[in-house]
């Protein structure tokens, strides 16, 4: 289908915002590493991945644009905090700790890849087309971050310890990536957000554990509590406010003008 039924329009908007906001905030955090990475070559590579995330966010905002009558930039920069749908894990600052940056990337990229693959089968054609292209790029990210997980896990006691600490720090909040947007079940039933036979959470947990174990790391993940309210419903950490204040500092000088 090329047009959405009226009753599914708002849930679809929320879902697309979740996809784009996750990517924008993750890309924003990672882009801050440009020039400060642990090795020059990785600095360059990690910056490319950050640019991909921001570019992906832009593509999704553009897809949303006609549905909400706002430009991509207005969507990215011009909403109040409760209108963002990103998960809280992408809001966290990493303090330029490479272990935290890599662990966060690990949880988010694998989730993103699975979500994009599901969306590439969406009955909403404009979305399916975009998602299948983005999913291919997300695979590059997954390969990149998996290599780091294994390398640091197997590196030496110090690196293993640091990465384990970062994984332990993020693993309680990472599953909230799966928090559904309002009326997500209806999108699934309607084939707009089709789910594969294996539940996406279990697919995610299995692949993360497989990679972590290859690096000799432990990883426990439980599905989010059914009633938990987080970023997908507009409940954000304090970090998102400071992130947005920083991100929108220039935009807010004169919203709507060209920069």
């Amino acid at each position: 289908m090329d047009n959405l039924p009226e009753n599914l329009k708002q849930p679809m908007i929320d879902l697309l915002l979740a996809v784009a906001d996750d990517k924008l905030m993750l890309g924003h955090r990672n882009s801050d590493w440009t020039g400060l990475g642990p090795i020059l070559e990785e600095d360059i590579a990690f910056s490319s991945l950050a640019q991909d995330e921001i570019a992906h966010a832009q593509v999704i905002y553009e897809l949303l644009s006609p549905l909400v009558d706002k430009t991509a930039d207005e969507l990215a920069y011009g909403r109040s905090i409760d209108q963002y749908r990103c998960a809280q894990i992408v809001e966290l600052p990493d303090g330029f700790d490479w272990a935290v940056a890599i662990a966060r990337q690990f949880f988010c990229d694998h989730f993103d890849r699975l979500r994009l693959r599901a969306l590439s089968h969406s009955s909403y054609k404009p979305l399916a087309d975009v998602a299948s292209r983005l999913a291919a790029e997300e695979q590059v990210h997954v390969d990149h971050v998996d290599a780091w997980i294994v390398r640091l896990g197997k590196g030496n006691t110090d690196s293993k310890q640091r990465l384990q600490t970062a994984l332990d720090q993020l693993s309680p909040i990472a599953p909230m990536l799966f928090e559904p947007v309002d009326h997500e079940a209806e999108l699934i039933t309607a084939g707009l957000y089709p789910q594969a036979e294996t539940d996406m959470f279990h697919a995610w947990r299995d692949v993360l554990q497989h990679v972590a174990h290859e690096g000799g790391l432990a990883l426990e993940l439980s599905p989010p509590n059914a009633g938990a309210q987080g970023g997908r419903r507009g409940h954000h950490s304090e970090h998102l406010k400071s992130l947005l204040d920083e991100m929108c500092e220039v935009y807010r000088l004169e919203p709507g003008v060209a920069w």
Partner: peptide
């Protein structure tokens, strides 16, 4: 690099990140 996180549009954010990346 100080301004990547404050670039006022998605396109400017991408371009500035790419530019600083080029310098590295």
């Amino acid at each position: 690099g100080e301004w990547i996180t404050r670039a006022p549009s998605l396109r400017r954010k991408l371009a500035l990140t790419a530019k600083v990346q080029d310098e590295v």
